[in-house]
């Protein structure tokens, strides 16, 4: 059941992205920026939390989930240490992902070479 929910929620979030790509010709880079920012805003107004509760990884693996982690971390930071937490909390919550992206990204780029598209 948990897997089915993740599949459905994750799939639907991607469908929204696909509609944006086909209808507006937004480039993938813009889609990513929009989705992260949307995740932050939706979390702030309390919409994303229930989606995460329902969809699990289906909501946290897509990019809005990254925004969710940032926003939730920022608010948690504020709870713990006041205004300073707004600056510390977000990145702290997403630190694993960011660091992994830098390190694995660097390693993959160094180890592999691009190939001609088929």
């Amino acid at each position: 059941m948990e897997y089915l929910k993740a599949f459905l929620v994750g799939g639907l979030i991607c469908v929204i992205g696909q509609i944006l790509i086909d209808k507006t010709r937004l480039t993938p880079a813009r889609i990513l920026v929009c989705f992260v920012t949307a995740g932050v805003i939706l979390t702030a107004i309390g919409v994303y939390e229930p989606i995460v509760k329902f969809g699990g990884a289906g909501a946290t693996v897509p990019l809005p989930g990254f925004g969710y982690a940032l926003a939730k971390g920022a608010m948690k930071g504020v709870d713990e240490m006041g205004a300073l937490g707004a600056f510390v909390g977000g990145v702290r919550a997403a630190a694993g992902g960011i660091t992994a992206a830098v390190v694995f990204g660097y390693l993959a780029a160094v180890l592999f070479n691009p190939r001609m598209k088929r």
Binding site: P28, P114, M116, K117
Partner: peptide
């Protein structure tokens, strides 16, 4: 980039 997973219209 070549290895970027983009769809071509």
């Amino acid at each position: 980039p070549l290895e970027m997973g983009t769809q071509r219209p």
